[in-house]
Structures are given as structure tokens and as C-alpha cells.
Nucleic acid binder design. Structure first.
Length: 113
DNA sequence: GCATTGACTCTAG
DNA sequence: CCTAGAGCCAATG
């Protein structure tokens, strides 16, 4: 018993990612902070990288602080954009999305001009 | 146990 | 807008 604390950290990150609603995105740093690890943005990416294919985690809703899909090997980068577009998110010509429209906010999202 | 790496972020130029 | 450097922390070798 007591060896579940090892899996608890990634589980917490995954749980937070799973809370991101469809059609919204979140940043690595944002997920890390909400999960309780304010300086572990990189670890969020590390967890998503090891994520099994059949998981229900919306990993594609996680982008970097620039509002772009993080660069990496494989087609997964392109796949992420396709998945987001499938949820109604639009990218600019530079492959960037609008935080003002798509960034997930836990609460204070009422201020919009 | 140290050195390298990385799906990150911030500041300067 | 883009590049470079530094800071950060866990995973990996």
C-alpha cells in the first residue's frame, strides 16, 4: 500500500488537463499551476508525452505560452492543430490562436469588452 | 550521483 | 516578429 504516491503527480496533471472544456485551450504553465506545481510546466509536457494513445485526456488542448503548438518530432504536432480546428478553434496565418477567445479560464472570464 | 535533455516561460535586444 | 540567453525542475542516461 503506500506506493501510489508515485503515480499521484502525473495523475493530478492529467486530472487538470481533463478539466479543460472542449473548444478551449490551456498553457503548460497554467496546467502546472492549477495542478499545484507552479514551476513544473515542463513536467506537464513530459507527462503528456508518455500518455497512452487510448487515454481520454485532451492533450491537444495544451499549448505553450505563445499560443502555438509546441514543436516536436513526429506528426503529432500537426495532429494537434487538426484536432483543435475540429473543436472550432481557428489559427492565424502564423499558426497562432487567440488567447482572448480560446484560453480556458477557471473563473474570472466575465470581463470581455 | 552528476550530466544531459526537454510537448516550458520570461526578459532583452 | 524573431533570436538568444537564463531560470526552472523532473526524467533519463
Amino acid at each position: 500500500m503506500a506506493n501510489d504516491s508515485l503515480s499521484e503527480v502525473p495523475a493530478r496533471i492529467i486530472a487538470t488537463v481533463s478539466r479543460v472544456p472542449r473548444g478551449k485551450v490551456a498553457t503548460y504553465g497554467q496546467i502546472a499551476r492549477l495542478a499545484g506545481f507552479p514551476r513544473n510546466a515542463r513536467q506537464v509536457g513530459a507527462v503528456l508525452k508518455q500518455l497512452p494513445e487510448d487515454s481520454n485526456v485532451p492533450w491537444h488542448r495544451i499549448v505553450n505560452a505563445s499560443g502555438r503548438v509546441s514543436r516536436r518530432n513526429g506528426q503529432a504536432q500537426h495532429l494537434q492543430r487538426v484536432l483543435l480546428e475540429g473543436e472550432g478553434i481557428e489559427f492565424s496565418d502564423s499558426g497562432r490562436l487567440s488567447f482572448a477567445r480560446y484560453l480556458w479560464r477557471k473563473a474570472s472570464d466575465a470581463n470581455l469588452s
